[in-house]
Design a protein around this nucleic acid. Sequence first.
DNA 1: TCCATATAGTTTCAATTGCAACTAAATATG
DNA 2: CATATTTAGTTGCAATTGAAACTATATGGA
Lengths: 146, 146
Amino acid sequence: MAALTLDRFIPYRLSVASNAVSSRISQSYRKRFGLKIAEWRLIAILAEAKRMTPQALGQTTRMDKISVSRAAAALMERGLVQTSTNPEDGRSHFLSLTADGQSLYAEIAPAALAMEADLLSDFTPEESEFLETQLRRIEKAASDFP
Amino acid sequence: MAALTLDRFIPYRLSVASNAVSSRISQSYRKRFGLKIAEWRLIAILAEAKRMTPQALGQTTRMDKISVSRAAAALMERGLVQTSTNPEDGRSHFLSLTADGQSLYAEIAPAALAMEADLLSDFTPEESEFLETQLRRIEKAASDFP
DNA sequence: TCCATATAGTTTCAATTGCAACTAAATATG
DNA sequence: CATATTTAGTTGCAATTGAAACTATATGGA
């Protein structure tokens, strides 16, 4: 049996790296745009998707329905997101970006990409690609074995 | 400028992967041993280090002093950790595992390694190694640029 | 059709977290 | 050596989060 050293324990390394990145980024979103990460995620998805139900947003962003509901409420409050009726299901509704939401997105997107570029400035494209693949694999492994 | 797709945004992938792994693991620690991740981290470090101040524990585990203080209090409450005076600094004290703490560690360590092995069962040793390295690099990048 | 069950989304309440203030001891400065 | 400043650790309070309950609609049999 290999020895257990916290410093070399992958779940620990993953958590520490993720926290470092998230706190850096969330600080930036909050300061510059007044957004939490959950809110930013909805905006990013809606910018591409035009309109979506909260349920679909939750699946896409891997957020639970409570977080989606609260993030959407905050965005509607600020006039960045609007609802429309879902003719196929009366329990649900569609969410979409308002014009304000779209222009905010247009501002944030380059900032987000710049942050990512900063984080990965020492990585070759192959290394970034590989990291992404491995993150997907480990996520899948964690989700699979129940 | 590359397009922004949340799905291919590394900070997002990192966060999703980390959450998936953390929730899986924390569930297991909690169910089987009644420990939160912060508490488990202290135990893991103290098992190797014999005794340490809260301050040093915080640095080593990357936890803030509040979290260390609360985790230590919970562990002392359960008789898994004990304090001793720090002759070099009267504001501080040493924390160390009790005999109970040590035997709990002896139980958890193999379980933790087994979980890691499960998560990485599809990875070659080189791939795991590479992932670890990448995670350290990205963590450093996130901590560095202020 | 009527009832049982399931699903979408929100809300309430309790637990967790994070910040700021606090105590106490150490160090630096005049 | 007296006082100001810094550091270690804890605690109180406010904000955030998560689980369970709740409303409303949909679906799947008798």
